[in-house]
């Protein structure tokens, strides 16, 4: 597990991060969400050791994070970049070797990764000759080629077409399933919502919310329920502990002061007729995001 504690960083007089604290758990996809300039990239750069924090500590599996352990990190910076005139496979091999792989092992990893990401046929093309989407795939490959135990990906999906998004999502999920910790940032909240197990929300350099996605959704949801049934629900307005939000014949949305009140409503509706649906309304990621920042 990767644990950040009270990371603080300022550029000159401008504070960038203020007491950033959160955890990235093993085998899980952690979404890192925040507006432009919220501090995502700075946090990631500090994680990778590209920038130094002014204060705060980072631990990996309980030990202070050092350069040695960072070699096992995979990083995809916000600003994409590989050597334009170098062949795709060659750059992957070079990067893997920089991370300590032997030539042979680096070659094997590069080959299987290129197949996996659908770049097998372009392995000997220079990067600049690839389409933009394929360049993005190559970039992902560059962050995965040394079998990292921790993946830090800054906006990995930006600029990808939907097909490539699926390929990349699949690749990341597989890494998480085999035990890697994956931290990724994104502006595309629906992808984050679909993909992440855990969620970290940052705004103005401080963490506004973090934890399991479902727990966060529950925590940030009003105790709101939607019900649809065959009979008229006009009686809801008179129920104690119930606040009607919307009412239209057999359909209603209401807030319950306590779960028991909602169950009482369900029983009454069942007594009156057939209930076609009854569901607690969970906050979407976009709602949580707007609420906390």
């Amino acid at each position: 597990m990767l644990q950040l504690d009270n990371i603080t960083k300022s550029f000159g007089v401008r504070p960038a991060l203020d007491g950033v604290t959160f955890a990235v758990r093993d085998g899980r996809m952690t979404g890192f969400v925040g507006g432009n300039g919220a501090g995502k990239t700075t946090t990631m750069r500090i994680l990778l050791g590209v920038l130094n924090a002014d204060a705060g500590e980072i631990h990996l599996d309980g030990k202070p994070l050092g350069a040695e352990q960072r070699r096992r990190f995979g990083y995809m910076p916000e600003e994409r970049g590989l050597y334009p005139k170098m062949k795709v496979r060659e750059q992957l091999v070079y990067l893997a070797r920089l991370h300590g792989f032997t030539q042979a092992a680096a070659g094997r990893n590069a080959d299987s990764l290129l197949e996996e990401l659908g770049l097998g046929e372009r392995r000997d093309s220079t990067l600049e000759s690839l389409s933009l989407g394929n360049q993005q795939r190559a970039q992902i490959a560059a962050s995965l080629v040394h079998e990292p135990e921790v993946l830090v990906l800054d906006e990995p999906f930006s600029g990808l077409d939907p097909l490539a998004v699926d390929t990349v999502v699949e690749a990341l999920k597989q890494r998480a399933a085999s035990g890697a910790s994956v931290l990724f940032s994104s502006h595309q909240l629906e992808i984050v919502e679909r993909l992440c197990d855990d969620l970290v929300i940052i705004a103005d350099g401080s963490i506004r919310a973090s934890g399991e996605r479902e727990a966060l959704r529950t925590q940030h949801s009003a105790p709101r329920y939607a019900i649809a049934c065959s009979s008229d629900l006009g009686w809801l307005r008179g129920e104690p502990d119930i606040t009607v939000v919307e009412l239209d014949g057999g359909r209603a949305t209401f807030d319950a002061a306590e779960p028991a009140a909602a169950q009482r409503v369900l029983r009454r509706a069942l007594a009156d007729g057939d209930v076609t649906s009854f569901s607690p309304q969970r906050a979407s990621l976009a709602q949580i995001f707007r609420e906390v920042i």
Binding site: G81, L82, L95, S143
Partner: peptide, 17 residues
């Protein structure tokens, strides 16, 4: 400059001192 311009420098910096 090439490494800076193409931004690969960040990846390199995360791998080697």
């Amino acid at each position: 400059v090439e490494e800076k311009q193409t931004r690969i420098v960040e990846i390199l910096m995360s791998a080697v001192p």
